[in-house]
């Protein structure tokens, strides 16, 4: 983008380039995020699982550990999602297991995000040798494959319960957030308002808290959601391969029992399909929220008005390089401006 620094520029409104965000600034940006269909869908699903996590143990039809004589039954009225090889109710296992999944996701997400923000913002802000060291550290953590690392740590811990696993995930999973945060801080640091605050002799930590962090909210949120996704997947994976205690119910544990009791070979699809779908649904909800944040941060990704049906009706094909030309003006749209205008030449 060309920089206009001429005299009129200072007085006129700043140039809004073609690709710039041209939404009405008066509409609060927050609502912009909430108007995003993807983000809303994602938040809706998250809310559903959130409620399930809270009330799960009360609304579950059975005790998930209670064995019964209905061995390996397909879904029926008494067991909506069937039973496992010892007659335990699978729906109850899923409902009760929701809490474990979400709690671990949340703890891991929060700890990794806090670590990431601290490392990233510090690196970006102090610069110099400190920055080099911290960046190298986060790059090292990025290259080291996390899941195997988590597996060997969790595998060597005497008791690897939910919270422990969550902390291990948090401690190994902060690097991506730190990297993004550092880049953003670097570019923020050069902006006028931060420079101005600096020149006014504000204390560094105040500067970071008051000026820098608020501007990183969207990025932090994206990092948080990303880490939660990774944490959920890791935890479920660890449970599935049997590293975490199999008595802690979560969706991965259900799959562990299914895999180890030949659910596949016995065709007991009700045993492993619903739990997997829950994981996928939760993962998708988190991804959708992240898409919402992405589009919020990067307006070029936004598909405002790109409603395929509407475009087809108006026979518009939005393309780069070949601007569509409207051939049939849509009815009902007032032809702005022409009503009050007649050519002066015609009148005279």
């Amino acid at each position: 983008m060309a920089q206009d620094t001429t005299f009129t520029e200072e007085q006129a409104a700043p140039e809004r380039a073609v690709e710039h965000d041209v939404d009405d600034p008066r509409r609060a940006k927050r609502f912009l995020f909430l108007r995003n269909g993807k983000a809303l869908t994602g938040l809706g699903i998250l809310l559903f699982f959130g409620i399930l996590a809270v009330v799960g143990p009360w609304i579950a039809p059975y005790d998930p550990n209670q064995v019964s004589a209905d061995l390996l039954q397909p879904p029926s009225w008494s067991h909506w999602l069937g039973t496992d090889h010892t007659g335990r109710d699978i729906l109850s296992q899923i409902v009760v297991g929701t809490r474990g999944v979400l709690v671990v996701g949340l703890i891991a997400g929060v700890s990794a995000t806090v670590l990431g923000v601290i490392v990233g913002v510090t690196a970006g802000f102090i610069g110099g040798m400190g920055d080099e060291t911290l960046s190298a550290l986060s790059n090292v953590f990025l290259v080291i494959p996390q899941l195997p690392l988590i597996i060997i740590i969790a595998g060597q811990l005497p008791t690897a319960g939910g919270v422990t696993v969550a902390l291990v995930i948090g401690i190994t999973g902060w690097a991506w957030g730190a990297r993004v945060m550092r880049a953003q801080t670097l570019s923020l640091r050069k902006r006028d308002f931060v420079e101005a605050a600096r020149a006014n002799g504000e204390r560094t930590w105040r500067l970071v808290l008051a000026e820098v962090l608020p501007n990183l909210t969207a990025i932090i949120a994206a990092g948080f959601v990303g880490t939660v996704t990774f944490a959920v997947m890791s935890q479920v994976t660890l449970a599935f391969i049997g590293i975490t205690p199999v008595s802690d119910w979560n969706w991965g544990t259900i799959l562990f029992w299914a895999q180890n009791n030949l659910a596949l070979q016995r065709g007991a699809w009700w045993w492993f399909v619903p739990a997997g779908l829950c994981i996928a649904l939760l993962g998708m909800a988190l991804t959708l929220v992240n898409f919402g944040i992405d589009e919020f941060v990067n307006p070029r990704l936004r598909s405002t008005g790109m409603n395929a049906r509407l475009l087809r009706r108006r026979r518009i094909r939005p393309r780069i390089g070949f601007t569509p030309v409207l051939r049939t003006p849509p009815d009902g749209r007032p032809d702005v401006g022409t009503t009050a205008r007649t050519t002066r030449k015609e009148r005279s």
Binding site: E9, E15, V18, E19, T304, G305, I320, T323
Partner: peptide, 26 residues
């Protein structure tokens, strides 16, 4: 004209290079 008064829009529309969401209506 000042920035934002539509000079680029005019030039790109006349060559049909205006990027989405640009639309030539008549």
């Amino acid at each position: 004209g000042e920035s934002g008064c539509g000079k680029s829009t005019l030039a790109y529309a006349a060559t049909r290079l205006l990027p989405p969401p640009g639309l030539i209506t008549s």
